[in-house]
């Protein structure tokens, strides 16, 4: 399999990276950022929207900061999983990503900005030619979506990354930088419902780090994940639950899901409903059913949508199990 040729830039600071981006943009040349490369390189090999230029972030040490409240975009997933600063739920989700070799290369920023995935898209160029391409990588043909034909407006590729739901529950903020300056926003607001657009990153914009509120360290929770194999596989469904109790009483609960739609789902209202009407096991059952109804997976991953919805119910129940025991 042959990757299309590209020019690789290796800046050693964020400023330098932005300068390179600026000069490429001024020449109307498109480019991709590359961090761990575990997602981008396979996609390039399969000719999935490859660019002529690639800017590597590997040499930028500023981006590898890792404390209880700050996680650099270039922190390796395995480092996150092993760090003493990492919240146990975040560590659990990080540790469940792909395989150890991929975790040693893959990064936090890369995982959050992971390209959405689809059976009709994550295929080689020759394969995609046999289905006459698809909406997400149409090779100039204006091809339709192959999952839900005759709609041609929205890409339904699935967001299958593990960190986002946990970080959403932590109310993490993402910090971005581009040629037009810095900005930050809640991770909850970061994603965009189109599987092609994926998130709010502007062309040439870069995720530098995320920040987590300090008080999160006192919260408890769990992350539950559905997949065929305990290694390699992307989540077919994932549920993160984080809660705070005060004197044995449930005070706050946050629930987020992944692997079910084009964006991770944040279920604020359902979580609040549970806190307000907390009646133990029955409430969890009720919430699980509500979450099942709230997600709308499509047939573009390994398991069927019906099964994934049923399982999100089971996963929610299991993720919330800790609510009962403490």
């Amino acid at each position: 399999m042959k990757m299309p040729p590209f020019k690789l830039y290796s800046p050693s600071s964020v400023d330098e990276a932005i300068q390179i981006a600026k000069s490429l943009q001024s020449k109307q040349e498109d480019f991709d950022w590359i961090s761990g490369g575990t997602d981008l390189i396979p996609n390039y090999k399969w000719h999935l929207n490859p660019k002529k230029n690639v800017i590597s972030l590997a040499n930028i040490s500023q981006l590898t900061e890792l404390t209880e409240t700050t996680i650099g975009g270039m922190v390796r997933l395995q480092d996150l999983a092993e760090s003493e600063f990492t919240h146990p739920v975040l560590a659990k989700s990080a540790n469940s990503i792909a395989s150890i070799m991929i975790r040693r290369s893959g990064t936090v920023g890369g995982n959050i900005c992971l390209d959405t995935r689809c059976y009709w898209y994550n295929q080689t160029e020759d394969w995609r030619e046999t289905i006459d391409w698809c909406h997400k990588c149409d090779c100039g043909t204006g091809a339709d979506c192959r999952v839900i034909p005759n709609q041609n407006t929205l890409c339904v590729a699935t967001y299958q990354a593990d960190l986002a739901p946990v970080l959403m529950c932590m109310e993490a903020r993402v910090h971005l930088i581009s040629t037009s300056g810095k900005r930050e926003m809640n991770l909850i607001d970061f994603f965009e419902l189109d599987g092609m657009k994926k998130n709010k990153l502007l062309p040439g914009e870069l995720l530098t780090h995320i920040t987590i509120p300090e008080e999160i360290s006192t919260w408890s929770g769990d992350y539950q994940k559905l997949r065929q194999r305990e290694s390699w596989d992307f989540p077919e469904a994932g549920v993160a639950a984080l809660w705070k109790k005060k004197e044995g009483k449930l005070e706050k609960l946050r629930i987020a899901t992944t692997g079910l739609e084009s964006i991770p789902g944040y279920h604020e209202d359902l979580a609040m409903e549970l806190v307000e009407n907390w009646e133990g096991e029955e409430s969890i059952k009720y919430l699980s059913e509500k979450i099942r109804k709230a997600v709308k997976p499509v047939p573009n991953t390994w398991y069927t949508p019906a099964y994934r919805r049923k399982m999100v119910k089971v996963l929610t129940k299991r993720a919330c199990k800790g609510l009962l025991s403490e």
């Binding site: 395989s99 059976y119 994550n122 295929q123 080689t124 394969w127 046999t130 289905i131 065929q228 194999r229 305990e230 290694s231 390699w232 596989d233 390994w302």
Partner: peptide, 17 residues
């Protein structure tokens, strides 16, 4: 079409299984 012509989607058990 054969949907899983690669070793990510053709699920050979890993050492964990």
């Amino acid at each position: 079409n054969l949907m899983n012509t690669d070793l990510l989607d053709y699920k050979i058990p890993s050492v964990h299984e």
